[in-house]
Nucleic acid binder design. Structure first.
Lengths: 169, 169
DNA sequence: GATACTTGGTTCAAGTTTTAAACAGTAACT
DNA sequence: AGTTACTGTTTAAAACTTGAACCAAGTATC
C-alpha cells in the first residue's frame, strides 16, 4: 500500500502539537527543577506514590505505572532515596520484592512544589482554554492513549521490557 | 492569593494529556531509533534543515528553531556530522558563523524514515480523530504555545540562553 | 584606529541519565 | 527435585546535558 501522508490540516495540527508539547514539557521541567530540584519524571514518580494506598508501591508496578524500565526505575528511586523523599522496604509476602515508600519529607516536598507546578499548568494551559476545549482535549488525548495502548498489546514483548500482568501490594 | 487548584475536569484533562503525550513521544522515539538510528530530537533537527531554503541554517537559528541551547546543538550536530547526515560550512558573510547543511545522505535518511514516522503519527493520532477534533487539537495547541511564548517574553533572559533576535543566512 | 563590548560558536570537564546485559535470589510449576 | 519465570539490582559503557570558559570576529565608541 502506498503511504498515506498527512493532509494539510493534519500537518498543521501536528506541528502545533509538537511545538506545544515540547515547549510545555520544557517549561514544566525547568520550573520543577528550580522549585523541587528534580525533573518532571522524578516528580511524577513521587506524585504517583502519593496517590497509591499507603503511599507505597512495588517497584515493578511503579515502573509500569510510570512506563519506564525496571532498571531505569532502580536508578531513579536510588536518587530519590538519596534525596530522602523515598524509602525502600522489603515486601513481606514476596522476599524478592521491594517496595518504594514516599517518606514524610517526600510528601512535604510534593506539597511545597505542587502550587508552583499547578500554577505553571494553569498559566500555560487551562487559563487559556474554554471549558469546551478542556473536554475536547481530554477526549482527544484519551483516543491517542487508547490507540497507543492497543498498539502495544499487538506488538507485545516486542522490545518492551515491562510487559507483564499486574500484581499488588 | 490562594492557590487555584485544577477543577476535576481540568485534572482529568491534564492526566489524559500527560499520559498521551509521554506515551506518544515514547512511541515515536522508539520507532525513529529503530528505523533512523536517532531520537525524535535529532530527527527533528534534520527535518528542520530539510525545510530550510537550500537545506542550510546558521547554528544559532537552528538552535532557536529547535529550542535548545547552542552548546547542546553543537553536540547534536557533531553527532549528526559523524553520521554523515549533516555537514558544517563556514559562513561567507560572517566569519564567526557556521552553517549546518543537510547532506544528500541526510536527505536520503529522512526520506527513508519518513514513511514509518508518518505511519506512527497516523496510527497513534489522526486515524482516530474526527476532522473536527483535528482542528480542535490545533486550536488548543496554538493557545498553549501562545501562552508559553508570551510567558517567555515576560521572563526574558531569565535563564534562557537562546533569547536573541533573528539573523539570516 | 584603538578600546571596549557583544555575538557566534566551540570546547571542556563534570555531572546526569539511559541502556543492555548479566546476576542473585525467590517463587511457581511439574 | 528440577526447571522455568519473575523481581529487582548491579555493572560497565554509552549517550546526553549543563555551564563556564574561551576564541575569534563583528560592532560600537571615542
Amino acid at each position: 500500500m502506498t503511504i498515506r501522508w498527512l493532509t494539510p490540516e493534519e500537518e498543521r495540527a501536528w506541528r502545533s502539537y509538537i511545538a506545544a508539547s515540547w515547549l510545555l514539557e520544557d517549561t514544566i521541567d525547568r520550573r520543577l527543577q528550580r522549585e523541587a530540584g528534580m525533573s518532571h519524571l522524578y516528580y511524577s514518580v513521587l506524585a504517583r506514590l502519593s496517590d497509591a494506598p499507603d503511599r507505597r508501591m512495588r517497584m515493578t508496578d511503579l515502573a509500569e505505572a510510570t512506563r519506564i524500565t525496571r532498571s531505569r526505575l532502580t536508578y531513579v528511586v536510588s536518587r530519590l532515596e538519596k534525596d530522602g523523599t523515598v524509602r525502600r522496604e522489603g515486601c513481606p509476602t514476596d522476599k524478592r520484592g521491594s517496595t518504594a515508600v514516599l517518606t514524610d519529607a517526600g510528601m512535604a516536598l510534593l506539597e511545597r512544589a505542587a502550587p508552583g507546578h499547578v500554577e505553571t499548568v494553569r498559566a500555560s494551559v487551562f487559563d487559556h482554554l474554554t471549558p469546551e476545549q478542556v473536554s475536547q482535549l481530554e477526549a482527544i488525548c484519551d483516543r491517542i492513549t487508547e490507540a497507543l495502548q492497543a498498539n502495544e498489546e499487538r506488538s507485545a514483548c516486542d522490545g518492551l521490557p515491562w510487559r507483564r500482568r499486574s500484581s499488588s501490594a
